[in-house]
Amino acid sequence: MDDERGGGMRIGLLGTGPWAERTHAPALRRHEELDFVGVWGRRPDAARDLAERHGTRAYEDVDALLADVDAVALAVPPAVQARLAVRAARAGRHLLLDKPLATDVAEGRAVAEAVRAAGVASVVFFTVRFRPETRAWIGEQAARGGWFTARAQWLGAVFTGDSPYAASPWRREKGALWDVGPHALSVLLPVLGDVRRVAAATRGPGDTVHAVLDHAGGASSVLTLSLTAPPAAAGAAVELRGAAGVSVLPESADEGAVPALLRAGDALLAAARTGRPHPCDAAFALRVTEVLAEAEALLGGAAPGGSPAGR
């Protein structure tokens, strides 16, 4: 299918939840080179409502939407995303995916293989990777090298504050490891190299997880991940220490997720037009899934359950 009609790539949205409503639909509507063709959701009434508010069409059949577009953006739970992404890739549609790619390695591998076999472009929306300050910092630190150790803290208050995502069933089931763990890995891997092994993983309060990673570049890193942090303690920080001294991930302007998703849309367009894979493609996201699955295996059963700390 030709990616150009009326000057833009035709794209559809799969999903109607809070993330689709707050981020994907506004970004797809605003993007100057994306033609927002329509919305499909597992709840047809929600799809109709979202489509009406953004001046587009609701589809009751996902295959009908796939027939009308060049690409799809997915804002659905990971297990649903994996199935739909394979379906869309096999139909020859480019993919703007969300993190995590999947919470099951086999499902994630199926997506990556479908993308490769179909020759379609894929970009996974690791939000922080599409912020200019983060992109520049990662490039500088990767070029500098010589890192000895790192720590990454991604502390959210999804279950302890007033987050619109607090009722998300998959977050309740999988917790911080799978929700914010991908963000931390998306920053560390391009700087420190691939993870050779997850050396240790243990649980903290609520759904908090601590993990120690051994990187191919010789450095080690420690992750602290939580969705049950006290609201006053929430935030993200990454610190590197090595031969060059100490480097800290700069804080980004509080612009929200929509501008970052607009840049992810730019990245998908570039990958589709040039055929060059984006650094945050499905293959990279599969590797993130594999690392998180290894950490999950070390943690064993129990948790997260969505139970806030101290409750």
Rank of each mutant, 00 (worst) to 15 (best):
G245D: 12
R203C: 04
L225P: 02
H24K: 01
A229Q: 08
D35K: 04
W40N: 02
R5Q: 08
V191R: 06
A283K: 06
F125I: 00
A237Y: 06
R172G: 08
A257D: 13
D45E: 15
L268P: 10
R131Q: 08
M9H: 08
L292T: 05
R131F: 10
S221H: 09
A237I: 07
A199L: 14
E140F: 08
R53H: 13
F148S: 13
T202M: 03
P18W: 11
A51R: 06
P169R: 13
R151Y: 06
D266A: 11
S221Q: 00
A271W: 02
A199D: 14
P304R: 04
V248S: 12
V209L: 02
L101I: 11
D254A: 15
G305R: 14
E239D: 10
P100L: 10
L14N: 07
A264R: 03
D63S: 11
L261S: 03
D68C: 07
S186D: 03
L189E: 07
R30W: 01
L84T: 04
V195G: 13
E251P: 02
E239L: 15
A309L: 03
P205I: 11
W137D: 10
S307Q: 13
T23Y: 00
A283G: 07
W19Y: 15
A167G: 10
G108F: 14
T202R: 15
A216S: 05
D194F: 00
V258Y: 01
